[in-house]
């Protein structure tokens, strides 16, 4: 690590349906499939090609499936290994994992979060099972598992009061995260792992990968998802955050767990266009793989500024 300030190289919205791993048949996952959900899986391939060209030290994940009420929790031990079984789809996801945690960065985020007035708590029980959202997202973003991770829980308390209060808190958590990264001197990839619209079908086809049954739950969800993606592609993230409470309510969005808002807060509400690598549905929910090429956009902006001051 140099004495350079740390940096966020990119932020991604990386949804975590276990179906995508089930469809891929990696050796870590027990159930076998005949494929399915190719649009989204190819989108993840395109994202990974882009990320392979970036140089980064650590992956930060904000996950909806570690739900806490007493503050935001962070993994606080260097190593976790176990088997992750999805409680909703145990037939699809039984994944053996072995992962490394960047504990110093996690602690720095907790300290910065407290400075923002947030309740922060370190998780130091070695028998803790890491949630399946985190495991799925990490596999899809970096199947080599060769980078340490930081995992932040989804704090339900503030969203209990209202979506607005929840989002404001997640923006503050994002700011705290960005400051901790800058101080660390590390290059970080940020992963918000949530679906967009999130009303599920309540029954599953047999086999689950029978794609003749896959479509968005209803038109309302599709329209809302497209609205959100349009704002992302146009770089209008301030407006997106302003519309999130309605989106959460009307499209039963998984954004109400705060992951996307945390990411946008950490990226300081970016105004450059995001790249949408794929959009697809999984058991009726809307899922988009979206990249905010943060370092690239900052470099371009710096170059433009230089050109403006040049004689």
């Amino acid at each position: 690590m140099s004495n350079q300030p740390g940096e966020i190289v990119a932020g991604v919205l990386a949804p975590h349906p276990p179906h995508l791993i089930y469809a891929e048949n990696p050796p870590q996952n027990e159930p076998r499939s005949e494929g399915g959900w190719e649009e989204l899986r190819w989108g993840y391939e395109r994202l990974r090609e882009r990320l392979d060209k970036l140089d980064y030290d650590v992956i930060l994940v904000h996950t909806p499936h570690w739900k806490t009420v007493v503050g935001t929790h962070l993994l606080g031990l260097p190593h976790f290994a176990s088997k992750s079984v999805d409680p909703i789809f145990p037939n699809l996801f039984r994944y053996t994992y072995d992962l490394q945690v960047d504990v110093p960065l996690s602690e720095a985020i907790a300290a910065e979060g407290e400075r923002e007035g947030l309740v922060m708590k370190m998780m130091r029980n070695p028998n803790f099972r890491v949630d399946y959202g985190t495991i799925t997202a990490c596999h899809l973003v970096n199947p080599r598992w060769d980078k340490p991770i930081v995992v932040l829980s989804s704090n339900r308390a503030y969203f209990y009061y209202s979506n607005e209060v929840g989002d404001a808190t997640m923006l503050a958590l994002g700011r705290a995260t960005a400051r901790a990264i800058a101080q660390s001197g590390k290059r970080a990839l940020l992963v918000a792992t949530n679906s967009l619209s999130h009303r599920h079908f309540t029954v599953e086809p047999d086999p689950p990968e029978d794609m003749s049954h896959e479509h968005i739950y209803n038109m309302n969800q599709h329209l809302w998802d497209m609205r959100m993606l349009k704002l992302m592609r146009e770089g209008k993230t301030r407006q997106l955050v302003a519309e999130l409470p309605d989106f959460n309510e009307h499209a039963v969005s998984e954004c109400s767990d705060g992951s996307l808002t945390w990411l946008l807060g950490a990226l300081d509400l970016p105004s450059y266009p995001a790249r949408v690598h794929a959009y697809g549905t999984v058991i009726g929910t809307g899922n988009a793989i979206v990249e905010w090429p943060h370092a690239e956009a900052n470099a371009k902006a710096a170059k433009r500024a230089d050109a403006e001051v040049a004689p």
Binding site: V203, P205, D206, H213, G284
Partner: peptide, 17 residues
């Protein structure tokens, strides 16, 4: 469920395969 759906079955759409 599915009170908003009129023409297209959705919540139960998988049951019939």
């Amino acid at each position: 469920r599915g009170v908003l759906q009129s023409a297209t079955p959705s919540a139960g759409a998988y049951a019939s395969a």
